[in-house]
Amino acid sequence: MKKIAAFIVLMLSFVTVISCDKTKEEDKETKETYSSGKVSVLVEESVVPIFEDIVTVFKSVYTEAEIEIIPATENKILKMIYEDSTRLAVLPKKLDEKEVNHFKGKVAPVETPFAKDAIIFIANKTAADSLIKYEDVVAFIKEQKKDKEKVFVFDNINSSLVRQFRNDAGVTDMSTNVYFFPTTAEVIAYVAKNKNAVGVVGINWLMQPDKNIDALKKDIKTLSVFNKKENKYFKASQSTIADGTYPLVREIYILDLQGKMGLGRGIASFAAGDKGQRIVLKSGLLPVTLPPREVIVNNQ
């Protein structure tokens, strides 16, 4: 009997050791820190390219970090963070008061701006117009008469761009002269083939085009937008975004709802830091803080 009891104790000890080792192994695999671990980030579709650049360099520096980028519409991102289905997101806007109030009593959202983007209008290369006024676009969106001469083309109907234009136009249903496509790439492709179309996109996609978009750039042009204060038209560029002469600028934020100093906070800190801001500068967008430049003076 004593031998059986001793055998049982020995087996239980053996199982306990295996369980502890397995737990330690699982903890090692799932442990998340400022620079390691695995996270998924929902990224608003119109600003995917710049965040991809940030993540690529981040992962090259911190090799134990696994970051999955999931393109999504603004509506989907907000819905998922409300439902606590995601803890990290990238949006080309700051949460408004109503959205922030949703998190009262919960984990407070940490919003980190890291780049300034521009909303631009693109047209077919053969189109006569090269200038556009934002207020004319807003008025056009309200108009319900069918216009065969011009159509405006947006990315997904639930995108941040559509939300902004709807709000400014004060409408729920946009004009029948407004078309929607699932992605920015499809908007650009449509404009490249139709001389009566004006596309509305984030400049990020033209500054950092993939192979398909790069091939289409020869068939489109960017329109200059009227600035009321200056009484002039300006094209979007780093300089006109920086000095405020281009009138349609928005900031891009990393939204962290992890409630801890985890990988999300590490990515945000990296993006807003010197290395991240240099990546933004190189991309053609405007950094939130301009990286310092070293000047070497030779006295000889």
Results as ranks from 00 to 15, higher is better:
residue 220 I to T: 08
residue 249 V to Y: 12
residue 36 S to L: 00
residue 1 M to D: 08
residue 197 A to I: 03
residue 179 Y to S: 10
residue 130 S to I: 12
residue 146 K to I: 13
residue 180 F to L: 09
residue 226 F to H: 13
residue 21 D to C: 15
residue 33 T to F: 05
residue 196 N to T: 15
residue 275 K to W: 04
residue 260 K to E: 11
residue 108 A to F: 14
residue 215 A to T: 10
residue 138 V to Y: 06
residue 214 D to T: 10
residue 262 G to N: 09
residue 36 S to Y: 04
residue 15 V to L: 15
residue 12 L to F: 12
residue 159 S to W: 05
residue 36 S to T: 04
residue 232 K to M: 09
residue 147 D to T: 06
residue 264 G to Q: 04
residue 229 K to C: 00
residue 228 K to E: 04
residue 248 L to P: 01
residue 201 V to C: 05
residue 216 L to Y: 11
residue 170 G to H: 07
residue 46 S to V: 13
residue 239 S to F: 11
residue 47 V to T: 05
residue 209 P to G: 06
residue 18 I to P: 03
residue 52 E to Q: 13
residue 93 K to H: 07
residue 58 F to D: 06
residue 127 A to C: 07
residue 220 I to N: 03
residue 135 E to S: 14
residue 191 V to Y: 07
residue 38 K to H: 11
residue 20 C to P: 02
residue 299 N to W: 01
residue 153 V to W: 01
residue 75 N to R: 09
residue 129 D to P: 01
residue 176 T to E: 13
residue 279 I to R: 08
residue 215 A to R: 14
residue 168 D to Y: 04
residue 248 L to D: 13
residue 101 N to Q: 15
residue 257 L to N: 07
residue 5 A to V: 01
residue 291 P to Q: 01
residue 175 S to A: 06
residue 7 F to T: 03
residue 207 M to V: 00
residue 144 Q to W: 08
residue 38 K to I: 07
residue 219 D to V: 03
residue 101 N to S: 15
residue 212 N to Q: 15
residue 170 G to P: 01
residue 11 M to R: 07
residue 269 S to I: 00
